[in-house]
Every structure is written in C-alpha cells, then in structure tokens.
Nucleic acid binder design. Structure first.
Length: 469
RNA sequence: GCCCGCGUGGUGUAGUGGUCUAUCAUGAAGCGUUGUCGAUGCUUCGACCCGGGUUCAAAUCCCGGCGCGGGCGCCA
C-alpha cells in the first residue's frame, strides 16, 4: 500500500529524500537532483551543512568550497529556514557522528555532496512559528499558520494517519459489499429535524447546507443500491464551543438494506477493528513520530491497541442504572450527558455501544419494535450510539421503513407529516428494512492520535469563531 | 449564552504596585571557528492586547472592550 508507492522522477527531482535514505548504499557515487525545505544550515566559511526535508524524508546536504561556486555557498549559508531549494549532487556515505563513550554507533546514513545549489523560493523571517523549534505553540497560532504547522513532523504524521484511517475504512466496507456515493450538500429543506442549519441562497431560492446525508443515503438504499457509504462534509449551525464540536465536519456514513441496528453495529466494530489492525501493522512509523513529539512535551506515548470484538453493549436502561448506582441523580428518559459518560467510561474506557434508547429521545425516522419496552414500561427504539470513553463517536440505528409508522412517529412528536413529505414520499413504493450510522472522522482520529482537541485532527477547522484560513 | 482562568519580544514563558533600564528558552542579524549533525563561541536585535480610571508610581490594582483556554449549556 503506502509502502509500495512508486515515486517517478519529476521535472524538479530525480529522487525523493526517502529513496536516498533507504537505498543509499545502492546510490552512493551516483548523481541525483533533489528538492526540499531547508530545515537548518550549519557552518560558515569554507563549508556548509544543510538539512533538507521533503514529503518522504530528510537528508543532509554537504556544500564545500571546492565543489560548489562561492556564490552558491554564500547563498546556502545565508538562506532562511524553510526556504525551498533544489540541489544537484552526488550521494555519499556520511562520516559517522561523534558519539558519547559507550554509546553504539548509529547505522550508516547518506548525504548528498552538492555540485549545484538553487534557491526555489526564499522564506521570510522570522517564521510565525518554528517548524523544528522545541518551544510549544498555542493552538490558535498554529491554526492561523496551518501551512507551517503542517510542516512539523508530528502534525504531518497525524494527517498521514487520517488518510490511512479513511483508506482502511473504505477498504473494509468495500469487502462487505458497500459502494461509495456522494450526496448533495445544498439542500432545500432539513434532511432531519433538530439541529440548526446554515441558510444560503441557491440562485433565487432559499436553501441550506446539508447537516447530514441521512435522507439521501436512505433514498439510495431504497433505490436498490443495497449497501452504500459516504465520506463527506456535514454542516451544523450550532453555537457550541467545546473540544469535540465543529460547525463543519467530515461524517463517515453507511446505510444497508435488509439490516437492523445490531447488524450495522457489527459492521462498525469490524471496520474499526480493521482500521486499528492495519494502522498497527503498517503505520507504526507515524505513531513513533507522534510519540517523539509527545515525549518532548512530557506527554505519555500513545499505543495502537487493536480492540477485541465484540465491543461491549450497554443498553440505555443499564447505562441509567450504572449512573444511578454511582449516586448521581438521573431518571429514565433523561439524556446521558458528558458527566454521566465519565461514570460509564470508568468501567468501559474503550469503544462501547449504547443501544436501545427510548423512542421518545430519538428522531422520527428511527425504527422501534412494538412491545420492546424499557425498565419503566416505555417504548424503546433501535437507535444506538458508539462511545469511546466519554466521547460520542457515532449515532446510528435501524430506520423506519413503513410509511404509516413514520407518519405516526411524526404525530407522536407533535410534528405535522405534511411538512415531511420530502422524506416520507420516498417510502411509498416499497422499502427494504434498513439501518446505518454516521461516524465523526475527526473524533475517531482524536482517539487514535491522543489529541485532546478535535481541531488538531482537522486541517482547517471551522468553529464558532474561525472561518479562516 | 453562562461560570472560571488567562492575555508580556516572531514563538512559548517568568515576573502580582517602586532597583523592571522586564527573566529564560527558542528565534532573527552580524562576525569567528568547525565534517557539522539539538553545531558551536562572541556581539547585537526584539515584548507588557486595546481604551478609560486609581496612585507620587501600574506589566502588576479597578472598569469596559476585544481575543484565547478550560468547564458547561446548546447539539442526529
């Protein structure tokens, strides 16, 4: 997969720095052209050492008076950090570094002895944030300068991992017969109730940004696509201000025909298991980079512990009981809030499902099995959440496929079915029982990378006060 | 929107009425040494969020604003 990437030469370089790092012994003596960001330069006078970095690795370039022109040498010695450069030179084995008494010599490494040095684009000074500096940087400064923040090794590793998580998730769903779709993000009316939408003008028609692909993935399943998934943006105009909420986020959604809530919970835990297993097998290098940074900040290292299957299931009634037994005031029908999740997470710190919520707490489109009652005799639903620790990752459930029941659900929630024909009309011509879920990608990444703020795992987060960059 | 805390060089910080002409780290500029590799030695540069007030004296106390962080609320 990622390891098998073929790096073809480009107009600007013959080799990546990663190739020289890994195949140095074969390349010694051959001429290469390389490109990168200048991380550091050392030396004045007759010589200059330069560390350069590209998207694949890092290497030292050696410039000396008798192999490059005086102009090139001077430019190299005075170049600002993070400038981009191009170097023509010969691969050579580095002289081994001095090591402290008793320490082992590191394995041989390689450098490029420059014959030609070109500055592609010079960086202004000072940098708004130091790419290799050890001082910590506030999140706001980082996000304002994300283009530089992203050059930091551990930040780059996090977004590399993000790409892998999506790749492995896709891979897994495809093996289970799911097909990738895209649904519209400009919609005429709410695709489900509840949350506030961002209004917009669609030419002369008032419209909204989609808060969920819910309706569209259901319609696709109704249309006979059987099993579908979508990885796409969702927009919520909620004025929340927390470590786990954003107003634009990427939702990983599935929907499958002839499935109930238990079936799609199984899909989800198999998918997460696959993602974690693949990361553990293929991407430890990225985890190591993150841990190197965490160590420098005094944080505990993260480990990729592949969760065992099945994930625990704690039905709503049992969750309420657990919270009550901890001495906290809560009654059946109350929402399970963050502080309650802390109590549950103390016993179930990893992934766990919370199935069988009261029907009254779930949206009208969630299915219920008549007669399936909770401990106080009220109707349960086939909706569920997936939590990791205290944080909600997923909301899902079996959907109601009977249009008469859908309309009754609306009336039970004091809503007028005639306002929801855009939704219910899709169910009038035969509908398979079906179920699905939506997973917050950034929240999953928080778990994997040990991030304490969802903004860390989103390239350019959109929150209540940030619309740029 | 509520409660609590914070706002000091480019970055991250120390400093809670007066030797603050503001600490340290990182950085930037210059010079020197050097097959260096967390380069190094010397020299230099750079800051108290904004507005008002108290006081002989404010980075420090008070009020307002703006911004940030944490907790909560809101939230499929």
């Amino acid at each position: 997969m990622a390891r098998d990437t073929v790096w073809h030469p480009t107009a600007f370089r013959t080799h990546t720095l990663g190739q020289i790092q890994h195949n140095g012994s074969e390349l010694v003596g051959s001429e290469v052209t390389i490109c990168g960001y200048m991380e550091a330069n050392r030396g004045k006078g007759k010589i200059c050492f330069m560390d350069i970095r590209d998207g694949t690795g890092r290497i030292q370039v050696f410039l000396k008076q008798d192999s490059v022109s005086d102009e090139d040498l001077g430019r190299a010695q005075n170049l600002s950090r993070e400038s981009t450069v191009q170097i023509v030179g010969e691969v050579a084995q580095k002289r081994p570094p001095k090591v402290a008494e008793g320490e082992a010599q590191p394995p041989p490494s390689y450098e490029v002895v420059a014959s030609k040095f070109t500055v592609l684009a010079q960086a202004d000074t000072p940098l708004p944030l130091g790419v290799t500096d050890t001082v910590s940087i506030g999140l706001d400064t980082r996000l304002d300068n994300r283009f530089l923040d992203l050059r930091r090794a551990h930040v780059n590793a996090m977004f590399t991992l993000r790409a892998r998580v999506l790749q492995y998730g896709r891979e897994h769903l495809i093996t289970e017969g799911f097909k990738e779709i895209n649904s519209p993000k400009i919609i005429a009316s709410a695709s489900e109730g509840g949350t506030n939408l961002f209004p917009m003008m669609y030419f002369d028609t008032p419209a909204f940004l989609s808060q969920s692909p819910q309706l569209y993935k259901q319609l696709t399943v109704l249309g006979g696509m059987e099993r579908v998934f979508e990885i796409g943006p969702a927009f919520r105009a909620e004025k929340h201000d927390t470590y786990r909420h954003l107003n634009e986020f990427i939702s990983f959604d599935i929907e499958g025909a002839w499935m109930n809530d238990d079936d799609v919970m199984c899909v989800q835990e198999r998918m997460i298991h696959h993602i974690w297993k693949m990361v553990a097998e293929n991407d430890q290098d990225q985890i190591d980079i993150i841990n190197e940074f965490r160590e420098s900040q005094g944080d505990e290292p993260i480990t990729v512990e592949v969760p065992s299957l099945p994930f625990p299931r704690i039905e709503y009634c049992d969750a309420i009981r657990m919270v009550q037994e901890a001495g906290v005031e809560i009654t059946w029908g109350d929402d399970i809030e963050s502080s309650h999740c802390d109590i549950i997470a103390a016993k179930y710190p990893g992934f766990h499902f919370l199935p069988r919520w009261p029907m009254s707490m779930k949206p009208f489109y969630i299915h219920h099995v008549p007669g399936e009652m909770g401990s106080t005799g009220e109707q349960l639903s086939r909706g569920f959440d997936l939590n990791y620790g205290r944080d909600e990752m997923t909301s899902g459930g079996q959907r109601e496929h009977n249009v008469d029941v859908l309309e009754q659900n609306l009336r039970n929630m004091d809503l007028d079915p005639s306002d929801f024909t855009f939704y219910t009309d899709g169910f009038r011509y035969g509908a398979p029982p079906h179920a699905g879920w939506g997973l917050g990608v950034a929240r999953l990444l928080m778990v994997l990378t040990g991030s304490r703020n969802v903004r860390e795992t989103v390239l350019f987060p959109r929150d209540r006060s940030r619309v740029t960059p």
